[in-house]
Computed example of a mutant assay.
Amino acid sequence: MSAQPRSDAEPRGGAEPLIEAKSLSRVFGHGANTVRAVDDVSFTLGRQEVVSIVGESGSGKSTLARLVLRLLDPTSGTLHLSGRDVTSLKGRDLQAYWRDVQAVFQDPFSSFNQFFTVRRLLNRSLRLAAAGSAERGETLMAQALEHVGLSADVLDKWPHQLSGGQRQRVMIARALMLQPRILVADEATSMLDASLRANILNVLADLRRDYDMTILFITHDIGQACYVSDRVLVMSQGKVVEQGPTDEVIFSPRHEYTQRLLADVPRLHENILD
């Protein structure tokens, strides 16, 4: 069984999308070694919306995230932020974009400079935030840490002195200090145990509620996607094979690939209904 992606890929409420990707593609290699990591992908991301991109390793979801973050240039297609074409931003314009669009990645340990304390790590991010005075910077750091459930005591700790969950919370706080409009969470819970995963998912939900933040959540775990998302996009071999409101994708999957992902989470339907 195969199916075309659902047409209901619009942000909730019918408002103008915050992010709009049109026919994005990214090709690596040449000739016989060509790989279409992202192949003609279009989607929107609305204000205060959580959209999950789900797929197995190699599906293209993380490459798509890097295109949205402008860490990679697309081979073809366009990307718009609030109607503005941001596909080819460079220099200061790109830095300004990164204040609006921040990321939390898979491995919180490798995201740290191991020779920096948490305070120094966060201070470097404050340069991009243009926080102003040192006092203002300290306030931003304390507020961001408090929001992710950490005390200011962690500021003078080294990365190896923190647990995996604490390191990931610091990385979320680092992004939060810039007060971005969009947070891209790329497999942000995949290296954590079950209890820590749930904790980080709840932090992300709080950010949407308390900061009116829009979140693009990248995951191989369709169960996590169901927990946090308004809409789900399912990717396979670089293409979006299915997308739509979370409950429709979960309870009425059209594509065999989506059905297989759901079959790997046998209690998902019961857990949603409980």
Rank of each mutant, 00 (worst) to 15 (best):
E16P: 07
R136H: 03
Q166W: 07
W158H: 11
K157L: 12
V240C: 13
G83H: 04
E49H: 05
P253N: 02
S88K: 14
L162S: 04
M213Q: 00
T87D: 12
V148T: 10
L122P: 01
V54C: 08
L94S: 06
S151W: 03
T214W: 00
D264Q: 13
S42D: 11
D264W: 01
H80Y: 11
L81Y: 14
G13N: 10
D107W: 07
M177T: 05
V234D: 07
R124N: 13
L162F: 10
I53T: 01
P11Y: 08
D186R: 00
V54L: 06
N271L: 11
I19A: 13
F251Q: 11
Y257G: 07
L71A: 02
F109I: 08
R254D: 05
D93W: 03
R36Y: 11
E146S: 14
I182V: 15
T75R: 13
P17W: 05
G165K: 00
P180G: 02
E49C: 02
F116W: 13
A3V: 00
T214E: 00
M235L: 11
V203I: 13
D210A: 07
M191N: 12
H30Q: 15
L128C: 09
P108Y: 00
I182S: 03
G132R: 07
S252W: 01
R66H: 09
R66P: 11
F112T: 03
P108E: 04
V240L: 06
L72I: 04
M235E: 06
D93C: 00
S110Q: 14
S133L: 14
L18R: 11
